[in-house]
Amino acid sequence: TTTLTYTDEEEARKAAEELKRRGITFTYTKRGGTWEIRIK
């Protein structure tokens, strides 16, 4: 499992869109002031 952490929502959203485009499965979690993208 790879976890990407972002403090900028815009960056996190761009990363999530890129992963979706590649067909990669991930979970997206907001934790306080950070956003976590966990790639399975």
Score class of each variant (00 low, 15 high):
Thr1Arg: 05
Thr1Met: 13
Thr1Asn: 11
Thr1Tyr: 15
Thr1Ala: 12
Thr1Asp: 13
Thr1His: 12
Thr1Leu: 11
Thr2Asn: 08
Thr2Arg: 11
Thr2Lys: 11
Thr2Pro: 06
Thr2Met: 13
Thr2Phe: 13
Thr2Val: 15
Thr2His: 11
Thr2Cys: 05
Thr3Gly: 03
Thr3Glu: 03
Thr3Leu: 14
Thr3Ala: 05
Thr3Val: 15
Thr3Trp: 08
Thr3Phe: 10
Leu4Cys: 05
Leu4Tyr: 14
Leu4Trp: 14
Leu4Met: 10
Leu4Arg: 05
Leu4Asp: 02
Leu4His: 07
Leu4Ile: 11
Leu4Gln: 05
Leu4Val: 06
Leu4Lys: 04
Leu4Gly: 02
Leu4Asn: 03
Thr5Gln: 08
Thr5Cys: 05
Thr5Tyr: 15
Thr5Phe: 14
Thr5His: 10
Thr5Asp: 02
Thr5Asn: 06
Thr5Ile: 15
Thr5Lys: 09
Thr5Glu: 06
Thr5Ala: 05
Tyr6Ser: 01
Tyr6Asp: 00
Tyr6Arg: 00
Tyr6Trp: 03
Tyr6Phe: 15
Tyr6Lys: 00
Tyr6Leu: 02
Tyr6Ile: 02
Thr7Asn: 09
Thr7Asp: 10
Thr7Lys: 07
Thr7Ala: 08
Thr7Trp: 11
Thr7Ser: 09
Thr7Glu: 09
Thr7Gly: 07
Thr7Tyr: 13
Asp8Lys: 08
Asp8His: 08
Asp8Pro: 01
Asp8Tyr: 05
Asp8Gly: 04
Asp8Glu: 08
Asp8Asn: 14
Asp8Trp: 03
Asp8Ala: 06
Asp8Ser: 14
Asp8Phe: 05
Asp8Gln: 07
Glu9Trp: 08
Glu9Phe: 07
Glu9Pro: 07
Glu9Asp: 03
Glu9Met: 05
Glu9Ala: 07
Glu9Ser: 05
Glu9Gly: 06
Glu10Asp: 12
Glu10Tyr: 12
Glu10Val: 12
Glu10Leu: 12
Glu10Cys: 04
Glu10His: 12
Glu10Gln: 13
Glu10Ile: 11
Glu10Ser: 13
Glu10Lys: 13
Glu10Gly: 13
Glu10Thr: 13
Glu11His: 07
Glu11Tyr: 04
Glu11Lys: 07
Glu11Asn: 06
Glu11Met: 09
Glu11Phe: 04
Ala12Pro: 00
Ala12Tyr: 11
Ala12Gly: 04
Ala12His: 01
Ala12Glu: 00
Ala12Met: 08
Ala12Asn: 00
Ala12Asp: 00
Ala12Lys: 01
Ala12Leu: 04
Ala12Ser: 06
Arg13Gln: 12
Arg13Leu: 15
Arg13Ala: 07
Arg13Val: 11
Arg13Met: 14
Arg13Trp: 09
Arg13Lys: 14
Arg13His: 08
Lys14Pro: 01
Lys14Glu: 10
Lys14Met: 10
Lys14Gln: 11
Lys14Tyr: 07
Lys14Arg: 12
Lys14Ile: 08
Lys14Asp: 07
Lys14Val: 08
Lys14Trp: 07
Lys14Ala: 13
Ala15Lys: 13
Ala15Trp: 05
Ala15Met: 15
Ala15Phe: 11
Ala15Tyr: 09
Ala15Gly: 03
Ala15Arg: 04
Ala15Glu: 05
Ala15Gln: 07
Ala15Ser: 06
Ala15His: 06
Ala15Pro: 00
Ala16Met: 15
Ala16Phe: 08
Ala16Asn: 02
Ala16Ile: 15
Ala16Glu: 02
Ala16Lys: 04
Ala16Asp: 01
Ala16His: 02
Ala16Trp: 04
Glu17Trp: 10
Glu17Ser: 09
Glu17Phe: 09
Glu17Gly: 07
Glu17Arg: 11
Glu17Thr: 09
Glu17Asp: 12
Glu17Ile: 10
Glu18His: 07
Glu18Ile: 09
Glu18Ser: 08
Glu18Pro: 01
Glu18Phe: 09
Glu18Asn: 08
Leu19Glu: 00
Leu19Pro: 00
Leu19Lys: 00
Leu19Val: 01
Leu19Trp: 02
Leu19Ser: 00
Leu19Thr: 01
Leu19Phe: 09
Leu19Ile: 02
Leu19Asn: 01
Leu19Met: 04
Leu19Arg: 00
Leu19Gln: 01
Leu19His: 01
Lys20Met: 12
Lys20Ile: 13
Lys20Gln: 12
Lys20Gly: 06
Lys20Leu: 13
Lys20Ala: 13
Lys20Asp: 09
Lys20Trp: 11
Lys20Pro: 01
Arg21Gln: 10
Arg21Pro: 01
Arg21Phe: 07
Arg21Asn: 10
Arg21Ile: 09
Arg21Thr: 07
Arg21Ala: 11
Arg21His: 08
Arg22Lys: 12
Arg22Ile: 08
Arg22Leu: 14
Arg22Asn: 10
Arg22Cys: 06
Arg22Tyr: 07
Arg22Val: 06
Arg22Thr: 05
Gly23Thr: 02
Gly23Leu: 03
Gly23Arg: 03
Gly23Gln: 03
Gly23Pro: 01
Gly23Trp: 02
Gly23Met: 03
Gly23Asn: 06
Gly23Ile: 01
Ile24Thr: 04
Ile24Ala: 04
Ile24Pro: 00
Ile24His: 03
Ile24Cys: 03
Ile24Lys: 03
Ile24Arg: 03
Ile24Glu: 04
Ile24Asn: 02
Ile24Trp: 05
Thr25Ser: 14
Thr25Arg: 12
Thr25Gln: 14
Thr25Asn: 13
Thr25Asp: 15
Thr25Gly: 09
Thr25Ala: 14
Thr25Leu: 13
Thr25Phe: 12
Thr25Val: 13
Thr25Lys: 14
Thr25Pro: 14
Thr25Tyr: 12
Phe26Gln: 00
Phe26Val: 02
Phe26Asp: 00
Phe26Ile: 03
Phe26Arg: 00
Phe26Trp: 01
Phe26Ala: 02
Phe26Lys: 00
Thr27Ala: 05
Thr27Trp: 07
Thr27Phe: 06
Thr27Tyr: 06
Thr27Met: 05
Thr27Pro: 00
Tyr28Ala: 06
Tyr28Ser: 04
Tyr28Phe: 15
Tyr28Arg: 02
Tyr28His: 03
Tyr28Asp: 01
Tyr28Pro: 01
Tyr28Gly: 02
Tyr28Cys: 06
Tyr28Thr: 08
Thr29Val: 12
Thr29Leu: 11
Thr29Pro: 00
Thr29Glu: 13
Thr29Ile: 13
Thr29Gly: 07
Thr29Gln: 10
Thr29Tyr: 10
Thr29Met: 10
Lys30Asn: 12
Lys30Tyr: 14
Lys30His: 13
Lys30Ala: 11
Lys30Leu: 06
Lys30Met: 08
Lys30Thr: 07
Lys30Ser: 09
Lys30Pro: 07
Lys30Trp: 08
Lys30Cys: 04
Lys30Ile: 08
Lys30Glu: 13
Arg31Val: 15
Arg31Glu: 10
Arg31Gln: 12
Arg31Trp: 07
Arg31Thr: 13
Arg31Phe: 11
Arg31Tyr: 11
Arg31Pro: 02
Arg31Asp: 08
Arg31Lys: 14
Arg31Ile: 15
Arg31Ala: 10
Gly32Val: 05
Gly32Arg: 05
Gly32Asn: 14
Gly32Met: 06
Gly32Trp: 04
Gly32Asp: 14
Gly32Glu: 13
Gly32Thr: 04
Gly33Asn: 15
Gly33Val: 09
Gly33Arg: 08
Gly33Phe: 10
Gly33Ser: 13
Gly33Lys: 11
Gly33Ile: 08
Gly33Trp: 06
Gly33Ala: 13
Gly33Gln: 13
Gly33Thr: 12
Thr34Met: 14
Thr34Phe: 14
Thr34Tyr: 15
Thr34Leu: 14
Trp35Leu: 02
Trp35Cys: 02
Trp35Val: 08
Trp35Phe: 10
Trp35Ala: 02
Trp35Asp: 00
Trp35Pro: 01
Trp35Gln: 01
Trp35Met: 02
Glu36Val: 14
Glu36Cys: 03
Glu36Thr: 09
Glu36Asp: 02
Glu36Lys: 03
Glu36Pro: 00
Glu36Phe: 11
Ile37Asp: 00
Ile37Pro: 00
Ile37Cys: 00
Ile37Leu: 05
Ile37Phe: 03
Ile37Trp: 00
Ile37Glu: 00
Ile37Tyr: 01
Arg38Thr: 15
Arg38Asn: 12
Arg38Ala: 12
Arg38His: 14
Arg38Phe: 10
Arg38Met: 14
Arg38Lys: 14
Arg38Val: 15
Arg38Ser: 13
Ile39Pro: 02
Ile39Arg: 02
Ile39Met: 05
Ile39Leu: 07
Ile39Lys: 01
Ile39Trp: 04
Ile39Gln: 02
Ile39Thr: 03
Ile39His: 03
Lys40Gln: 15
Lys40Asp: 14
Lys40Val: 15
Lys40Trp: 15
Lys40Pro: 14
Lys40Ser: 14
Lys40Glu: 15
Lys40Phe: 15
Lys40Cys: 08
Lys40Tyr: 15
Lys40Ala: 14
